[in-house]
Design a binder for these strands. Sequence first.
DNA 1: TTGTACGCGTTATCAC
DNA 2: GTGATAACGCGTACAA
Lengths: 370, 370
Amino acid sequence: MTNKSNDPDHPGTEAHRPRSFAGRPATITDVAREAGTGKTSISRYLNGETGVLSRDLLGRIEAAIAKLDYRPNQMARGLKRGRNRLIGMLLADLTNPYSVEVLQGVEAACHALGYMPLICHAANEVDMERRYLQLLTTYRVEGVIVNALGVKEELLQGFTHGGIPVVLVDRTVEGIVTDMVGLDNPAAVALATRHLVDEGFDELLFIVQPVTHVSSRRLREAAFRETVASLRASGSTLVIDLASAASALAELDERIDAARAAGKRVALFAANGPVALRVAVHLKERFGTNWQASVALLAIDDSEWAQLAGMTAVRQPTYEIGRRAVEFLHERLGGAAMPARECLLPGELIVRGSTHCAVPEQAQLPSQGL
Amino acid sequence: MTNKSNDPDHPGTEAHRPRSFAGRPATITDVAREAGTGKTSISRYLNGETGVLSRDLLGRIEAAIAKLDYRPNQMARGLKRGRNRLIGMLLADLTNPYSVEVLQGVEAACHALGYMPLICHAANEVDMERRYLQLLTTYRVEGVIVNALGVKEELLQGFTHGGIPVVLVDRTVEGIVTDMVGLDNPAAVALATRHLVDEGFDELLFIVQPVTHVSSRRLREAAFRETVASLRASGSTLVIDLASAASALAELDERIDAARAAGKRVALFAANGPVALRVAVHLKERFGTNWQASVALLAIDDSEWAQLAGMTAVRQPTYEIGRRAVEFLHERLGGAAMPARECLLPGELIVRGSTHCAVPEQAQLPSQGL
DNA sequence: TTGTACGCGTTATCAC
DNA sequence: GTGATAACGCGTACAA
């Protein structure tokens, strides 16, 4: 099984193939042999323990590494060390730009701290989540960042009991106390709701997906009702299941009509980006391309199309959320043993035309709406 | 996932910590000891070599595994076996829905074939791409799927020379001959261009990002010109750099005005989703919310907002692209030694209002456009 | 049918 | 300064 790639008596041969020989990547042993030394010195060099090595040996090592194009095997390294610099990142839905943006923060932070994110995309399937969670333990990730929908207490206990730190993103999980980072939902919702009221809308309709086990949805809905109450405004909630939205959309139409018939200026408040898109598409089908003039729409999540639609939105500090999640994990991995933390970041209201100035007579008449 | 608590002589104690003992995950040795047997039998059980094991032993093994909540260490397994079931997936830009959709195909196929995708997101940064490519070799992935922008021959040679199969997605890389899967660009562009001409548009403007080193962009642009020529239509190309789009957009305005002044019915053809969005936002700023009535827009990539904007688009078989990429890789990993293949999948034209019937007098007059 | 011994690539320990 | 050698967790001849 020895290979000593190309000995001095065959110079120039295989010059274009720096690797040991066939397919197999060079190992630390290959490098040691090539440099005429033992594995220990190579390992020392790799781990930055220079200064302990003689000038001469150091040069030989570098030459050998370059010649063989050697890269240390992270798997073996992890096996020995007990840690492989892998951290798991479970995402419920990459179709949601929110997830992608958080991911970018996570990646940047990992990059900076020397971790490698093992990204798992559940694609909204609960079994996938379970399966991926299993896989993550199998690959011995050092920690996990979780943003999922169906994850229950039991699934995460495998990690917490195993001493593997878990950081939750956007939503909490019942029965699990651990670090969490996400949007300050109450503040964000209050901000947006106040904006609608300030602009003169007097019938608010909050539209949200089924809140089952997704804490952020529950929090947003609750915050909406509280704010509406505290402002003595009129508002209600509509639950929509994106998988089968027909009935909810019909209900939506009715409520809009009813409010208008009562002379109210109605504004729709979508609890997140996907909901907003579904609603917007529906409004466009009903009111035509100029639907914006007929009904106001605001959303949490500043989707890429929000600018195109001129929709007011609450921008989440997504990048920062991802960054902080990794930082939390890093601290835990460093041995920090503090109680579970909760990091709630503020959202930013981006005002666009969709919620601008609801003066009743002006917007209604010239439009062909309804 | 029940874990029959613990042994009979300590009932109730530590019921909440099924793992071996302290944080450390159980090893195969622990299981062997627990089951009162050797590691070999455990290994056999894990690899499905049942039937070779006695009824009794099998039961003990299952019990031990459940009790210790044992999960084989993929790292160690990979180290020994020489393959760790990891395949690298390098993506240029997850912000582009195209990438996410391809990814979903990749994940599903990996899932089905027993691989674990190691997802690397370069976020449009060339150094990131290089760095991730390094990391992938470091983690000894068995194969790579690459969809990147700045990747050059040399970077990929590390894999090909190392005998690690590479599959390219959407674009080829100069100097690298290897499996590739993507859209049938010539056919897709021809399809869309013909549609525009059929609908009565007689001034076509193809808008594309700088084609430097991205083969798919070049192919699309070339196909556009060829089709325009073969149809004896009038068309030109505009290059836009999304990072600094101002000048290109100004140029766009001029060309639109010129064409209109000449009595032409102009249609814009965006080479991909991100370009389409940028252009659409610009058109909206210029022509107002009803910009659709003023100028036709068509794009390759059926973005999520396309339906909202009522934009005609060419839907790429993204999911299938991802699936095929993994299949190609799987075949190579199985030892298949055929020449490099190229799999070009057809796109699907989704006709929406934006390109509907360019009868000149009807669409222009009632709109307040320009 | 079951157990023993060795090696995968790396790091840690302890000699020299 | 440097280099053998023993683990890390697992798979696999080979022996029993």
